[in-house]
Amino acid sequence: MSSVLFEEPGPKTRARHRTWAVLGSIVILAFLALVILKLWTEGAITPDKWSFLTMPSILLGLFEALLSTLFAAAIAIVLSVVFGLIFAAGRLSRVAVIRWPSILVIEFFRAVPLLLLIFFIFLVYSDVLGALGSLVISLMLYNGSVLAEVFRAGILAVPKGQAEAGYAIGMNRGQVLRLIQLPQAIRTMLPAIISQCVVALKDTALGFTIAYPGFVREGELIFTSTLYNNPIAVGIVLAAVFIAINYSLSRLAVYLEGRQRAKMAGQQGMDQTASTTEATDANTGA
């Protein structure tokens, strides 16, 4: 094992690393053991706290709730992509009356906390939209604005000669955008789009705060019941399911990015692809 920061170690260094490895393992294991011991003695993870996992009706309820969370996430993602495409095109427009409102909308919804949007839309429009509508619209406004910037970066990263070739054979600006730049941009932007899907899926859990009957809400119904009273056990199960879904999606994004890089290797435009996906990776903190 070697990297830039260290190389194949000699016997003395190996011994030192071994000492560190043993010390580190002891500290980490001791810490984990302490946590588990504390959880056990306080009765948070004793077998009776997990017994809900053996009840078919509860498992079915959790599964249905997970489906409705995934359903909300799926609608939100589709709407976000449409919203993102429209506003990316708007921001790239040469007409100031279209460009400036697009910039304003994108920048506003990117800077405002998603939960503030959800609360506001739910408090004001819940009669019309309901919990699902409020959640999906809020997610669309936020993720759509982020995606608009991803698309814009992707379109700008397509080599200039492509657009010029389009104009040269007599296409107008709309055709160049739609038929030449966008198809190439979408392909390079796919990893970033998937990363944003992970963000959207994670944010769908916020539906819990406006009582959307999703996965987290269903979990709350279990742990608040006097029968179970097990927030830690339920929380661990909820987290594990989200981690499994999001981790697989992230792996997919990494795989697609790797394939992309291999394909683009030696071609012009590779650097731009790498930098734009990195920029959106940082965004996943949201």
Binding site: V198, K202, D203, A205, L206, F208, T209, V216, G219, E220, P231, I232, G235, I236, L238, A239, F242, I243, N246, Y247, S250, T284
Partner: peptide, 12 residues
Amino acid sequence: FRNTPLVVLFIL
């Protein structure tokens, strides 16, 4: 922690 929704961590 990167893949868990913040809401779930808040509940925990």
